[in-house]
């Protein structure tokens, strides 16, 4: 009986909340994978730039910079994120075609700058940034489901659905797929590598902002919150094979659930070490991502 009790009172809620956070990791991971798939760069500035934009939303809606409505603040922050992504890619694009590793190191530089700018504009204080959503909660089969959970789930599903539709059906999306498969052939066929790269970088930035805004209510906002969150996204991307969008999705949910189970059942103090172990294990067992054998890495 106690087994069932623990199953219902511990395991299911842990898996549920893990899945919710996992969706957010997946949003972050999808951005990383989009950029990696076409330009072969790992964008280490992803987390810090997303963190900066989350702070912008806070600054613009709380009166620190301006007193806009939440929606307007998000819109401005999104535009800022797009502009930053555009700027970053413009600066490193000559490197991208030379060495993927050098350009990856360059993104570390942008990450440092974004972090410094956040510190300069907003200081090292911790602030709260909530979502304007109705607060309610109900329980299904002993599982407590909150309005926040449903919001995250809905936004994640809509965003990821939209992303896949864009990639599958729009011209840019098809070009993105072609270039990811074979950049040389695609360029010979007249596709413009750079415009596709811009598309990937900008889409990734938008995904990053959405992920950051959704994750912040569970904790608080500080200079490192979002960057730390993105590290789980990195792990998710690695598990998914770093070049597979569905892999990133599955990897995100898997990391979310695994981390929750590990912190609860084993130890909350070794989560990064656990993450390291998971990454090493995944890279050895599934060098091309977990979906490689299932045949799902189509996109």
């Amino acid at each position: 009986m106690t087994f069932w009790d623990s199953l219902i009172y511990d395991l299911f809620p842990l898996m549920w909340s893990g899945m919710i956070t996992g969706c957010l990791y997946a949003l972050g991971a999808l951005g990383l994978v989009m950029i990696f798939k076409c330009s072969k760069v790992v964008n280490f500035s992803h987390g810090n730039v997303a963190g900066l934009t989350a702070f912008l939303v806070y600054g613009l809606s709380s009166g620190v910079l301006m007193s806009l409505s939440w929606g307007a603040a998000v819109l401005v922050a999104m535009l800022a994120a797009v502009a930053i992504a555009f700027l970053i890619y413009s600066i490193i694009s000559p490197l991208v075609f030379e060495s993927d590793l050098t350009s990856t190191i360059a993104t570390l530089g942008f990450g440092l700058i974004a972090q410094g700018v956040t510190l300069l504009m907003f200081g090292a204080d911790i602030v709260a940034l909530d979502l304007p959503i109705p607060r309610f909660a109900f329980s299904v089969l002993g599982l407590l489901v909150t309005g926040y959970d449903l919001t995250v789930l809905a936004v994640a599903i809509v965003t990821i659905g939209a992303l896949f539709i864009v990639i599958d059906y729009t011209k840019l999306g098809i070009a993105f797929r072609a270039i990811s498969e074979n950049p040389f052939a695609a360029e010979v066929c007249g596709l413009n590598l750079k415009s596709v790269h811009y598309f990937a970088w900008i889409t990734a930035a938008i995904l990053g902002v959405i992920g950051a805004l959704l994750i912040v209510p569970t904790t608080f906002l500080s200079v490192t919150t979002v960057a730390t969150f993105m590290l789980q996204a990195f792990a998710a991307a690695v598990i998914g094979g770093f070049a597979s969008l569905p892999g990133a999705l599955v990897g995100g949910v898997l990391i979310g659930v695994l981390m929750n189970l590990f912190t609860f059942y084993v130890s909350p103090e070794y989560s990064s070490t656990f993450l390291l172990g998971v990454i090493l294990l995944a890279l050895n067992i599934f060098p091309n991502g977990i979906l490689q054998n299932v045949g799902g890495s189509r996109v």
């Binding site: 990696f36 590290l231 989560s271 390291l276 990454i279």
Partner: peptide, 26 residues
Amino acid sequence: PSRNLHGIYLAVTTLALALAVPEMIN
């Protein structure tokens, strides 16, 4: 365990290594 990882994959793995350090110390 990382002998077959190259370039970016190894870089990300070392990143995880760096993150695990402060935790282990504490």
